Amino acid sequence: MSLANHIGVSPVEFRRARKSDCGDVTDIIHKTVRKVYPAYYPAEVADFFCMYHSRERIQADIQAGNVWVLRVDGRTIGTGSIEENNITRLYVLPEFQGKGYGTRIIGELEQRIGEEYGSVGLDASLPSCFLYEKLGYHTIRHERIHLMNGIVLVYEVMGKQLVMTNRI
């Protein structure tokens, strides 16, 4: 038993995703999209996100070393990815949202990006915009993707200046 358990705090681990994490990462994304997005978007948008974040794409990103996972008590509950100086595919299981885990993932990813870049960007879905604003991101522009049957996916392109650490 870890010291963290003796004081009532769950042990938290943030690490690069492994090949064996692909199923968990896919499940986190799809469960979150299916649970959260219907309050903000038509069903076709949730379908689009689940197709876009396919197991094959996630697996390729894991193999490229771009995917990270957040684990609590040995369970993977959140994920985020990095592409150059962009945070992508950040999701926390719905039952763990509102507890600071998304903020933890963003902070960890920003720290890694800050080692090489002075700014970070991301595409924010409607459910996540307020979290990113709270963490210092600002909207650069509004975007939209026209899907089938006149359905439009709207999102924000956001950015933030970073405090540079360990940059040469």
Rank of each mutant, 00 (worst) to 15 (best):
residue 151 I to M: 07
residue 120 V to A: 03
residue 69 V to C: 09
residue 108 E to C: 01
residue 123 D to I: 02
residue 122 L to V: 07
residue 106 I to W: 04
residue 157 V to E: 10
residue 52 Y to A: 10
residue 119 S to L: 10
residue 126 L to M: 10
residue 8 G to S: 06
residue 160 K to D: 07
residue 64 A to L: 11
residue 33 V to M: 04
residue 130 F to S: 15
residue 124 A to Y: 03
residue 138 H to G: 14
residue 168 I to L: 08
residue 53 H to Y: 15
residue 157 V to A: 13
residue 78 G to L: 01
residue 1 M to D: 15
residue 16 R to D: 00
residue 146 H to W: 05
residue 133 E to L: 08
residue 48 F to K: 02
residue 161 Q to F: 06
residue 150 G to K: 04
residue 47 D to H: 05
residue 163 V to Q: 15
residue 9 V to T: 14
residue 104 R to S: 09
residue 46 A to V: 06
residue 75 R to Y: 05
residue 77 I to T: 12
residue 88 T to S: 07
residue 128 S to G: 15
residue 4 A to P: 01
residue 119 S to P: 05
residue 105 I to C: 02
residue 100 G to W: 05
residue 23 G to F: 00
residue 6 H to N: 13
residue 45 V to K: 01
residue 143 E to G: 15
residue 16 R to C: 07
residue 131 L to S: 05
residue 155 Y to S: 14
residue 28 I to M: 03
residue 120 V to N: 00
residue 69 V to H: 02
residue 93 L to T: 15
residue 87 I to R: 01
residue 79 T to D: 04
residue 116 E to G: 05
residue 8 G to T: 13
residue 124 A to T: 10
residue 16 R to H: 03
residue 148 M to G: 00
residue 154 V to E: 15
residue 60 A to F: 03
residue 119 S to H: 10
residue 71 R to W: 00
residue 129 C to D: 04
